[in-house]
Simulated scan of single mutants.
Amino acid sequence: MATMKSVQTGAVGKVEVVDVERPVPGPKDVLVKIRACGICGTDVTFLHMGGMPARAHLGGELVPVALGHEPAGEIVEVGAEVTELKVGDRVVVNPQDAPTGIIGCGGRYGGMSEYLLVENATVGRSVAVFPDTVPFDVASLNEPMAVALHCVNRSGARPQEKVVVFGAGPIGLGATIWLKLRGVEHVVVVDVLPGRLEKALAVGADAVINSAEEDVAARLTELHGPGANALGQPRPGTDLYIDAAGAAAVFNTVVASAKWGARLVMVAVQKKGSEIDLGGMLRSELTLIASQGYPTEIFEVTPQLIEHHERFAQLISDRVPFSAADRAFELALTPGAAEKVVVTFDA
């Protein structure tokens, strides 16, 4: 039996690199040699939990999770009935299309492995092919950039609008790139870490605000001009707010700052619940829009990721070899230590 190494959750806050059976593709499958896989906040959540609860009929105890849902790699085996793909194709994967469960999120397979079985492999549904002009580490951004694009699509952002993005992590910066590629006139990024704000300017933000040092509403008024809520109270002229931070303070800041008819898109998972000032929402007729995942965007992003790969490459803060996977996850677990960690695999 051929084996391979795969990363799964271990004790709380730890990963284990284990030897597992190397999958064998069936007639409709392909086997992908993984060359890069990003670490996501969802991976970190599983680590904090020490796994995920098993189904109720199994007693509900925690079971290990095969990690990694942001893989990119090269096809090394092709099933007999697969006609659209061939050995040597470089692909990104849709983790939600696997019939045995979401890749890296409780399914049978995880992308943080030496090899990944893509079941019922179909171009445009389970995989997309990308050229060798795009490095594998940048290609692994395909999945999180689909999350960011769905957020922007949900926002309905128009070119003439003024937008602020809270949180300069990968999703916030990805949303910033998509907004500018969409032709949005003015995009401000808010964060508390100077290095992240510098990165935001590098990827195309028109201005940044350090909310630890500046009055956000006052700065937005300077940047976006004056507006007012339904009662005529002065507010910044910002049209659209995007919460890619998931902090209660962001929501409260938006409600207190929103002009009449402003919109707020929540794409970040809220870390803590907070009391919502419904009266403040009423006074601005603030529209709250939730954004989850990527119903259609998983491969809609791929052509622009290919075209603008050097711009998206700036989102990666750390590239760590698979041989040091435990260190990669330690970085991802440490607040402020890294922005986007990608684990790389030898050819």
Rank of each mutant, 00 (worst) to 15 (best):
A2Y: 12
P321V: 05
I177K: 01
E161K: 10
G26M: 11
E119D: 05
S113Y: 01
A205V: 04
G261A: 14
F130E: 00
A347K: 13
L193E: 13
K259I: 04
I171S: 00
A258Q: 05
H308W: 13
G261Q: 14
V7G: 03
A56L: 14
A256K: 13
F136L: 10
V123N: 11
V127C: 09
K33L: 09
L67E: 02
A54C: 08
G110K: 08
A244I: 00
S126Y: 11
S317F: 09
P131N: 12
V301F: 06
A98P: 04
V87F: 08
D243W: 02
P135A: 11
A325S: 13
K33C: 04
G124L: 10
G246M: 06
T302K: 01
E143S: 04
V192W: 00
V32G: 06
E307I: 02
A36R: 10
P144Q: 06
F46V: 00
P226H: 09
V44W: 07
Y115G: 02
A324C: 11
I306V: 15
E339N: 14
K28Q: 15
L282E: 04
I316T: 10
V65N: 05
P226I: 09
R319Q: 14
S211M: 12
T45W: 11
M145L: 15
G279I: 03
P236W: 00
R319F: 06
R196I: 01
A139P: 06
A230V: 09
A328K: 02
G13K: 02
F322H: 04
A146Y: 01
I102W: 07
A207H: 11
F322W: 03
V32K: 08
C151F: 03
P64I: 08
D346Q: 12
V92P: 05
H57C: 12
A244E: 00
D89H: 10
V188E: 00
V138K: 03
V152P: 03
